[in-house]
Design a binder for these strands. Structure first.
Lengths: 229, 229
DNA sequence: CTGCAATTTAAATGATTATTTCAAATAGCT
DNA sequence: AGCTATTTGAAATAATCATTTAAATTGCAG
């Protein structure tokens, strides 16, 4: 079968163009024609190599995710036996790195999909993201101490993720305004390390406070004749 | 001129249908036909009463914002001379109320606009939101103490807003799954008071930590022969 | 009750835009 | 040279919508 074991030039160019295009405009607003122009290939190439647009969408997200994690390992390069605060820092740096890195498209595509759902991507995203989410949750649980309930963990994880994903919600990625029509009202010049450091300190303080509350709640519920709420 | 001083039945019905429709699918994906079906009016009624779709979009957001604030006053019902923590709590309750209340559409429409910008709404949104944003910033500044820089305030405000808006990003508003195709992976049963209380405690702790850092930074920069970083 | 202006209606206009397919051309390999 | 994988350009196919128009209707003032 000639060349093309996997990923001949055209194929790869389409894939890369697709990740960019889908991350900017989402599935519906992106046209195959646009992708092909960006990829420098013929209009028919997408259907030839990927069958249809939906399949390309899935493959593009897979590829974006793979490359994103390759560049920003989820543990942030921190050893698994490092102190929990260090492991926490590593995770946040990794997530925010992926969110803010203009070469990473996985979160952007996922965000577009959530904002204007097609349903095409939910299985793939869930399958790939869940393990990472669970690992972050485990670290948060560790920080909250042994008395933390699942709900405690969920609330704190929510606060943390919200902060990490926020720059994406407001299109504050570097270069975003080159393709986004109107200059958005709030767009501080942000610097990964500055923001990530802030998020880490802010969140560790929030978690410590939650832990205090959890432990005082546990004390109150144990020592005297148990009195709930 | 007959009846219709302002807002005859049809007009109001269109406006209400439009806020709902735009908040669900954004400007582009919403068709005039859809709005008219939802409003129970004729297809031509939008053009007759509002001129065109863009103008309806603007009017719909205006109306959604007005009603949202009417239901959830920005100060959360806390007196202006209350302690700053109380005023902070009031603001958060108000914002999260608006975000999570299924009858409020202002944040949802704004979020759709940000995710898939048309530019049509930016002026109106900015004009209406800025004062409120500034008021929250002022409270954060108060909490951070006199030594806080604009950047300190900005970072903390960002963390707070991120947490408040997060439920919207993940379509966790009550009833969202009735019109959103696929059930999203993470959708905890959330309760306004529970989540808002968490956000308030979490954020106050984060702010307190930031304040500590600001003040130790100020001490370090003053007393000894100034040594930065 | 008449006539006028505001509203509502149904149908059509008109213009656009995109995915997919196809048959022919090309290029690489043996 | 001959086979197969790819690339090409163009066309087929299809699906929509915002907006306009002219006719019908409504409600009120005179």
């Amino acid at each position: 079968m000639g060349r093309s074991r996997e990923m001949t030039g055209t194929c790869r160019q389409i894939l890369e163009a697709a990740t960019v295009a889908f991350s900017r405009k989402g599935f519906r607003a992106t046209t195959i024609a646009e992708i092909c122009v960006l990829a420098g290939t013929n209009l028919a190439s997408v259907n030839y190599h990927f069958g249809d647009k939906e399949n390309l969408y899935i493959e593009a997200w897979r590829e974006a995710f793979r490359r994103s994690l390759e560049k920003h390992p989820p543990d942030g390069g921190v050893a698994p036996d490092a102190p929990v605060e260090e492991r926490f820092r590593g995770r946040i740096m990794s997530i925010m790195g992926r969110v803010l890195d203009p070469e990473c498209y996985d979160f952007e595509i996922a965000h577009m999909e959530i904002g204007n759902p097609t349903g095409i991507l939910f299985d793939v995203i869930h399958e790939h993201m869940e393990p990472l989410d669970a690992e972050l949750d485990a670290i948060v649980r560790e920080l909250l101490g042994p008395r933390a309930t699942a709900e405690d963990v969920q609330l704190c994880s929510m606060s943390i993720r919200a902060q990490c994903l926020n720059p994406m919600v407001f299109s504050m990625r570097p270069g975003a305004h080159e393709y986004l029509p109107p200059p958005l009202p709030l767009s501080p010049k942000l610097n990964l390390v500055l923001v990530a450091d802030h998020v880490i300190r802010f969140s560790l303080a929030g978690i410590a406070e939650a832990r205090r509350q959890i432990e005082s709640r546990a004390r109150a519920g144990k020592q005297p004749a148990a009195r709930r709420r």
